[in-house]
Amino acid sequence: MKAPPFGYRRVSSAAEAADALRELGSDARILAGGQSLLPMLSVRIASPSHLVDIGRADDLRHITADNGSLRIGAAATQWSVENDQATTAAAPLLADAISRAGQVPIRHRGTVVGSIAHADPSAEIPAAVLASGATLIAASTGSEREISADDFFQGPYMTALEEGELLREVRIDRWPDGTGHAFEEFSHSHESWPVVTAAVLVLLNGGTIDRVAIAMSGVDGRPVRAGQAEHELTGQAPTPELLAEAAQSATRDLEPFSDVFGSGRYRKRVATALVRRALTTATTRAGGGA
């Protein structure tokens, strides 16, 4: 389990990283925390020609909250984000998801943006990002563009990033005060890979659901939103029966993949249970009685 030969370049800024990607071509990969990429190299699933190490790029390590938006740079570690007061205030759902994304030593190296760019279909952080309606900022030499989370995840380990683009930042717009959040995960052991996760945000207004977001991972080739269930919940009073029905609705049309961690049928069952629990917890946290 040794990596194949590769070139290595350390960059000190986002602009240098983008330049390096342009110069080195499509076989170059960004190295951030390396918690997914380096094991892939070790088992030789990936064999990039070059690694562009952004770990010391100062303009990529930011975690800032302003004008209601949380901005996390590509080199900010999971541990620093989940323990950041701006994050826990602006995006507690993301903080919860990060706390389940591997053991503490892994989170000290792994990055939030790296997990998004890696786009593992079962991972925690992409589900939370999707539920949060986040915006992804892709940078290439001389230009930037914004990609909504809905459009960003395209399939297993596939994203909307194009050749030469660096995922520079994730921006999460803060939900209003009083929003309830919940993150639920099923994994076989406490620290093993996630099988299914559910990320939920609920905002109540006068006893009815004003706004709700439901995202799941581990049920499709990419994290998915449950738009139909969100629609059915909006404007309704959150009774246990309603939340259970919404959870059924959230997974009704899914045809999850099967692997050694769980069959598609099992994933669907677990997702339904996790969405129901997450809706219940989030609604309670939002001040509802469910």
Partner: peptide
């Protein structure tokens, strides 16, 4: 073999 590494062959941790 579907469980060639500790990613797939899950052993209990101290938390389990």
């Amino acid at each position: 073999l579907q469980t060639p590494s500790f990613a797939e062959y899950v052993i209990p941790t101290s938390m389990d």
